[in-house]
Amino acid sequence: MLELRLVQGSLLKKVLESIKDLVNDANFDFSSSGFSLQSMDSSHVALVALLLKSEGFEHYRCDRNTSMGMNLGNMSKMLKCAGNDDIITIKGDDGSDTVTFMFESPTQDKIADFEMKLMDIDSEHLGIPEAEYHAIVKMPSAEFARICKDLASIGDTVVISVTKEGVKFSTRGDIGTANIVLRQNTTVDKPEDATVIEMNEPVSMTFALRYMNSFTKATPLSNTVTISMSPDLPVVVEYKIAEMGYVRFYLAPKMEE
């Protein structure tokens, strides 16, 4: 028996919107402490890891660990039928080949249930070791999205370099080059507007902008994004989900020329 009631149902809608274009199908792993998902994109270049802890739910019941394979496109279609203010409940029964999403309007005058077919997904689970990163940049998520979008109109790859001067995003393409430098800026009215650079050692790595732009679909989940880099490790682009968990995107670097 599985029953998860999320008062802020829009969070789940936003989570799906942030990952559905990157990953087609994924296993949702439910346990008593929350649910998680880990999946690579079809070309095995990026990996998404999602965690939503049970504390974030108004009601959370998971009698035993269970894994449900879902097509994220289909799940997104169903969740789009929930209003932004709706309470969303996920329900499942042991051994069932379906999952039910229940949507309740805030005033309880409209209740809908959508039953979705589950699927068997044969997916690899990767071990992600704890790492000490050379540099961790925390910045406004909207600014990061803007930079990725702007650079993608010039080139296909971005070089992200962190030095004590700041963080530099560079690209080059047929029409020319672009460099955007952000300096550490903590003298802002709101903490979420700050750019904070923690650097142990300078680092410079190259990534495909197509993936970075896909990650920025998680921007509505969080005002800030954290970018963690070490040479010869995938970059981690993390969007924290308030009080509940995170969506993390891992992207393998390009080889340096």
Partner: peptide, 14 residues
């Protein structure tokens, strides 16, 4: 063009 590496080159299957 910089060749793209894969995630599986960094993280192993559990």
């Amino acid at each position: 063009v910089n060749p793209q590496r894969q995630i599986t080159a960094f993280f192993s299957t559990t």
